[in-house]
Nucleic acid binder design. Structure first.
Lengths: 208, 208
DNA sequence: TCCGCTCTTGACCATTTGATCAAGAATTAT
DNA sequence: ATAATTCTTGATCAAATGGTCAAGAGCGGA
């Protein structure tokens, strides 16, 4: 019988360790060079193993990419999920902005990986965008709309508000190079950015 | 003597026409597949000529890429340049947002090309970012700061305000696929987005 | 018309790269 | 201990791709 790919069954210690090593290495490399710009050799080197060994765990380059995307999608949406209809509108939204800024600062690679995927037409996660993502966004948009209609928030198109929050916060991860080029390499940017964004959105959304 | 590359000297009609064909084709292809994901053959096919012929006009793939970037940079910054210290602050900024939205709607490829370049660390235009771009942004930031200090605009970090406008407007070009996945393929998005953004920023920036 | 220069391309080359394979090393179960 | 299974990698392959070259076609000025 030919050499069998490790199936969904029980995972060896080595298997678990190496798959994690590969996923970590792949995130770093894919987020910098993109899918096409990344070579399997690069990932293997960063993961500290030979290319054939890497391909023993993930048969194809594409499989690694998809696995990395899936592994990070959940974390990336977590803050949106946390928006609570029962909370105070401005408080909930400023928490959301703060959480997204935190992610942009601490996990910029994940943001860049998504940005790259979507920029290129989301060939791998198109289904996810139209399914789970849309559902979650619609649900949270409904909450925001209800807040506006109750006069607890300035009237605003909730979907575009969510887009605006995504765009402004992820900007600091995705376009980090540009931000640094303009602002210099200091370390206080993110704090100032967070303060500015929260002030801007809070003033913009306070019911009047 | 070896075949000489057409120098900066006088340009043939054919030369002008073909270089433009190549640049147009290259923008379309690079903006979709990125630098590494694009093949010279693809560009040549789209420009309606053979690969060697394309390489007669641009010796290396990289030369085409740089030329396309340079050709579009100016247009992309034009709206920022138009911000006028002598104008009304809220009016100037809402015009700026509208102009950027217009570009995102009409020339999304250009936006995606830059997004891709910056996302990958701006290997080709790093100099431009730290030079001309930074200078222009600093100049306009000074204007915005002066408006704030004169009480004609809410106090705000001008650099981060500019970043916020870039992020929110270019989002509709760069992440078009995601926007469509969530909102459907209707045609009214951009108008609604523009209204929402202008309202948000105007409320957020009105002096209080 | 004729000559020189520009333009065009099929064929080709070298390198990169995703993927395979066979054989041996390490680990695990009995 | 030993057999079975999992893990590892050097060597190799085939396809894709950036770039070259020589030879011919087309164009413009005298």
């Amino acid at each position: 019988m030919p050499q069998a790919k490790p199936v969904a069954a029980r995972k060896t210690r080595i298997q678990t360790r190496n798959e994690q090593l590969i996923l970590d290495a792949a995130l770093e490399v894919f987020s910098v060079y993109g899918y096409r710009g990344t070579t399997v050799d690069q990932i293997a080197a960063r993961a500290g193993m030979s290319k054939p060994n890497l391909l023993y765990y993930f048969r194809r380059k594409e499989d690694i990419y998809v696995a990395v995307l899936e592994h990070t999608l959940a974390n990336w949406l977590e803050p949106l999920r946390a928006i609570d209809a029962a909370g105070d509108p401005l408080d909930q939204l400023s928490r959301y902005i703060a959480a997204k800024m935190h992610l942009s600062r601490e996990k910029p690679e994940a943001s860049r990986l998504f940005a790259n995927e979507i920029l290129h037409g989301a060939p791998m996660i198109g289904k996810f965008l139209k399914g789970p993502l849309k559902d979650l966004v619609d649900a949270k948009a409904a909450i925001i709309r209800a807040w506006s209609e109750a006069g607890r928030l300035a009237p605003v198109d909730p979907h575009h508000l969510i887009f605006a929050i995504w765009a402004t916060t992820q900007h600091y991860a995705d376009f980090d190079v540009q931000v640094r080029a303009v602002l210099g390499n200091g370390r206080g940017h993110m704090r100032a950015a967070e303060r500015t964004l929260i002030a801007l959105f809070m003033n913009g959304l306070r019911p009047r």
